[in-house]
Nucleic acid binder design. Structure first.
Length: 282
DNA sequence: AGTGGGAGAACAAGATTTAA
DNA sequence: TTAAATCTTGTTCTCCCACT
């Protein structure tokens, strides 16, 4: 496994670009939603990418745009070896100029279709930009942050125009199993504030709980409880940021029976207590 | 010092996940 | 599919901190 990894960070804005070649099979671990925009580009190999409530089959030359706070995870397709480019950036990193930027970000990241399958010329163009970005981030010459920002802008504008000209395809679920799990995930997204158990869902979707548990993990990369908790904590974070609601009330609103448990899960996922999070982000 | 919101530890009961 | 292993959750109790 080879890896190049560059990061720039201060209090206000952040970007990060990395290039990773993975030999064999790999399933990611760690943070599964964050306040960065994320761009994932597959140089070679194939992956499944689960985003929010459905799985995309990603192959060489595909781009994925992941919005802020969107739950996501890549999983193995069974085919070994892949190489990808990953770019993260915060809104502040790029929002320093006016123009069309908010519209472009909306078009690319909030259009309901995270997967873009590029033409050959499109691939050449973006791969060239990615190479330059990686080089800037690696060499860190004078003004490299600005240079990186300019390259990122160029990429975003190119993609916005690309999407305007090319019909965005609606991609099929990779298999009926993926579709079934996607339905369950959609249900969870709509009902996380209620009491949800695997048994309840398995009855509602006519699958045995054991089987559901297994395919859910296989498709999403999350166990049922992990997924549910991530959705709940994501919403709790939003409430902590955007309201003054008491922690105990937030815990109830997002579906936790008691605060003690809410606090435990919150810390497990974010590494912070709810109030620490509010202090930092509220 | 008293009060209330919040964090967290320990434990038992129950639910989920895994291996066969 | 099942049983066993493991993890999750609710309860309760203690401690901490800010405020009065």
């Amino acid at each position: 496994m080879t890896q190049l990894h560059c990061e720039f960070k201060n209090a206000v804005n952040t970007f990060k670009v990395s290039n990773k070649k993975v030999s064999g099979h790999y399933n990611m671990a760690g943070n599964h939603f964050h306040n960065y925009y994320e761009i994932y580009y597959l140089l070679s190999g194939e992956r499944y990418y689960f985003i929010k409530d459905r799985t995309f089959y990603v192959t060489k030359g595909d781009l994925i745009f992941i919005d802020q706070y969107e739950l996501h995870k890549t999983t193995d397709t069974g085919v070994p070896d892949h190489e990808r480019v990953l770019i993260y950036f915060t809104e502040d990193f790029i929002m320093t100029r006016g123009g069309m930027l908010p519209e472009i970000l909306t078009l690319l990241f909030k259009n309901g279709n995270p997967l873009v399958r590029l033409s050959l010329s499109g691939r050449n163009f973006v791969e060239d930009l990615f190479r330059k970005m990686l080089q800037e981030a690696q060499v860190k010459g004078t003004g490299y942050e600005m240079a990186f920002q300019a390259l990122l802008m160029q990429f975003l504008v190119y993609m916005a125009r690309y999407l305007e000209q090319n019909q965005t395809n609606i991609f099929d679920h990779p298999s009926p199993m993926h579709q079934k799990v996607s339905e369950v995930a959609q249900y969870i997204n709509g009902h996380y504030s209620e009491t949800l158990t695997l048994t309840f869902l398995s009855k509602r979707f006519f699958i045995s709980p054991y089987y559901l548990s297994r395919i859910f993990k296989e498709v999403t990369g999350f166990s049922f409880i992990e997924y549910l908790n991530n959705i709940r904590i994501k919403e709790a974070q939003k409430l902590l940021r955007e309201s003054r609601t008491k922690v105990i009330t937030i815990a109830e609103k997002v579906g936790f029976g008691n605060v003690a448990h809410f606090g435990r899960v919150f810390k497990g996922i974010t590494g912070q207590t709810p109030l620490q999070y509010r202090k930092q982000n509220g």
